[in-house]
Amino acid sequence: MIEIRDLKKKYPSGQEALKGVNLEVHNNEVIALIGPSGAGKSTLIRCINRLVEPTSGQVLIDGKDITSLNTSELRKQRKKIGMIFQEYALVDRLTVMENVLSGRLGYTGFWKSLFRKFPSEDISKAYALLERVGLSDYVDSRADQLSGGQRQRVGIARALMQDPTLLLVDEPTASLDPKTSRQVMRLIIELVQEHKLACIINIHDVILAKQFAQRIIGLQAGQVVYEGKSDDLDTNVLTKIYGEEDWNVKKKDSNSDDSEEDDAQDIFSLGEK
């Protein structure tokens, strides 16, 4: 259970990325954060594991306030929070196996990790995960030799290596083609269900959000402007989140002369097939 209370973030440049966000995520729940670029989605997600230090407010995970932790307590907490990135964020020159094992760094001592001496449970877990994401043949390949979809699978395996209770996912599909995007999203959701995780997904793609998340949070200019079940997401809501003008631009793109409602319906039905 994650509770975010009045979370604010102001960057040194003066930009106010978050202006008091309140949010709850329950166990086993997948929520999607949608909103225009620059709405603060990435900042919000990074405030949860403090890759970005919040300016004020609280992030409570199972009642414990993340924002008040000292460095070593924070590291302990981070172990339990897996993260998946837009550009995969793999270490290119390390092998797939090393990248996956790096998910265990929080659990492993410095010297052991330096000489790649991970416990055998970790190794067999890594093999199992790599098999689960379909990369058994690439264990000793270097990460930069893989395709985008494969790289993201490595990223997923790395996040799950941490035995997380919460999964933060930042634009997992923005660098992938539509087909691979759906495969990757499906994989993430399956794994989240298998491991009974809470999951927050930042996502640009409204269709994918609607299809894969149970609940949708709309963020705009650093504030939550919508919160509701994914089935309730309609054009009015999108207008609210993305703004009238933006939404109209989107509509024109879909080269249809029908009414707003029908047009939007079209987009959504795509996602439900």
Binding site: R78, F85, V91, D92, E98, G155, L168
Partner: peptide, 29 residues
């Protein structure tokens, strides 16, 4: 490249581990 550094940090790695796994492989060549 800062992204891998972020990712390694997010696993709960210590400063030294971040250096060995995030920085060093990128820098060594």
């Amino acid at each position: 490249d800062k992204e891998p550094i972020e990712a390694i940090t997010a696993t709960g790695a210590s400063k030294l581990q971040i250096f060995v796994y995030g920085y060093l492989p990128q820098l060594l060549p």
